[in-house]
Design a binder for these strands. Structure first.
Lengths: 319, 319
DNA sequence: ATAAAGTATGAAACGCGTTTCAGCGCAAGA
DNA sequence: TCTTGCGCTGAAACGCGTTTCATACTTTAT
């Protein structure tokens, strides 16, 4: 493999000059520049990027940690990140974690070993203290409201979104409301939980734990929800579904089970996935792509910032 | 930043010994090993991975090039790759190309600069000669039938799949058949095109170019197909849709337009996305996750191999 | 007892590009 | 005419871990 010293020798200049040519530094005589370029071309030379990374101390790579790749929520978020990365000439290293704390830590660890210049966490299971520890090695951005912590973040106000959806349902005459969520932990989930809790208290209803469906991520999970639902004596009239995929699964399965939406069950989804529009599912749109883009911008920013992005209520026909 | 020499000095050993400890080489006395480990721990030392990459000449990273991340087909494929990568301790660098030849070349270029140890191409726009050129720098695997070329590949026989679907439709009494596809170029598309062409010839029908819908990738594209369809005087009775997302869009839009599936239009999808099952769309399942896994295995294999994976016809209610 | 084989360990070379610093030449300003 | 100062270059140091090679000490086999 030919290296920079070979080029220097053949061109009769020093490696410094070759390096200058390679990096478009000024102060290289046009004549030499051309000569060096010619030799580079002749020998089909290419920098060893690992040497570049080593000596520059940066890699132009960002790690993106997400629990699942094959999920519209995350892949759209990822697409947002990718579009910015492309523009800024960064490479993305993806770390699928499945919410395994170990794998998340492995990703953060890449910051310490200088494999990446920053880390974007789309959703996490690990603790704040872990993240705060790794911040000394490089910028980290998350996708949730970090409150008063000094961590870069983009988020939507899930508390407000849930509240608005609940009030909308109430106005439409639904009082027995449940919800479907991916997991109970995580900032976003807790905020939703809080909004729900407050709602239940406000209307003086008992809290029905069986109306809260956990582990809802995919279409298939929506099916399971309906299966549970049909076996309940006292079932909710409406469901908030924190993910359009699940909402779609619920709607499809309701049809199979002979239940009508919204007649027998009203649903409000989240994300505004293109399909929800075809299936006429009322949903709360989250600016996922924009969030992804912002995440990328954030890891590149000097100081930690917090950015809230708006959600949008889209009225259709599932309520 | 503390480095291996600091560790060596503080532990009173040579850097070689520290390196041996770091890499679990034999021939280090238990006593020294422990001492070194302790110093490493005390100084909170971590290898600079870029130096490791430079001196080892490999990075344990694989580039994955795909046109779109946010598409179930590719994200499932990617998930397959990722699951194997995880197991084999490899990192994935994703390169979203949008079928831009330049971006594909940038990805392949990472092989030359030693940024990655191999490249997985999920779908491509660039030429065989480009790929063959870059093979000298490292293994490349693609996701299509490479025929007699010496390139690692996994694929399904799309010609056979299309043929089977066409015959199935014919047996069910449909003769006027069209199809929806992502693009006309690409091995897979050409094979499908060929199967379709042959079918048309065999039943002595004229070839209707307007029955071939290009640019079909997402739900939204399915909508457009239906819009075009309703304005046709002479329209096909059935469509082969090379992607379940599009099939879903078509079915949903047909309902809006007052067309029944399969009454007014029969459809056969591809991929067997979970949703197609809920929407009772007949489809041809492609082993996407397995293909992804195989792709990873292939880039790790010594010699180029070609592996064909089977498709599976799933009869439901859209025909 | 002695050769052969294995265990341990360090110095130095190696992978390779970037950057700092010193220095030279020439031109503009004093 | 003398001093700055900019333009241009190269030597050497730097970032940092791995690996080879030589060496020395133990064991084991004969």
């Amino acid at each position: 493999m030919t290296n920079i010293r070979d080029i220097a020798k053949k061109a009769g200049v020093s490696v410094s000059t070759v390096s200058r040519v390679l990096n478009n530094h000024p102060y290289v005589k046009e004549e030499k520049r051309r000569l060096v370029e010619q030799v580079i071309h002749e020998l089909n030379y290419e920098q060893n990027i690992n040497a570049v990374h080593l000596s520059k101390g940066k890699t132009n790579m960002i790690a993106v940690v997400l629990p699942f790749i094959n999920h519209p929520y995350f892949s759209l978020l990822l697409e947002g990140v990718a579009s910015q990365a492309l523009e800024k000439q960064y490479q993305l290293v993806i770390c699928q974690t499945n919410y395994d704390v170990k794998k998340e830590e492995e990703a953060l660890h890449m910051l310490k070993t200088k494999q990446v210049d920053g880390v974007i966490i789309c959703s996490r299971a690990s603790s704040w203290s872990t993240i705060e520890y790794y911040q000394q090695f490089g910028p980290i951005a998350v996708c949730e409201n970090v409150q008063n912590r000094s961590i870069r973040s983009v988020y939507v106000d899930h508390y407000a979104a849930f509240k608005q959806a609940l009030l909308y349902l109430k106005e439409k005459g639904y009082t027995d409301i449940g919800y479907c969520i991916g997991r109970m932990t995580g900032t976003n989930s807790l905020q939703r939980q809080q909004a729900y809790q407050e709602y239940v208290e406000r209307i003086n209803q008992p809290y029905h734990p069986e109306w809260v469906f956990q582990g809802c991520l995919n279409v298939t999970d929506g099916e399971k929800v309906v299966e549970k639902l049909v076996q309940m004596k006292n079932r909710p009239q409406a469901l908030l579904v924190t993910n359009d995929q699940v909402a779609i699964g619920i709607k499809a399965q309701c049809e199979q089970a002979g239940m009508s939406v919204p007649g027998d069950l009203a649903i409000i989804g989240f994300d505004n996935h293109p399909l929800s529009s075809y299936l006429q599912i009322t949903t709360i749109e989250l600016p996922l792509k924009e969030m992804g883009e912002t995440l990328f911008t954030l890891v590149g920013s000097k100081a930690p910032q917090k950015i809230e992005l708006p959600f949008r209520f889209i009225e259709r026909k599932s309520v």
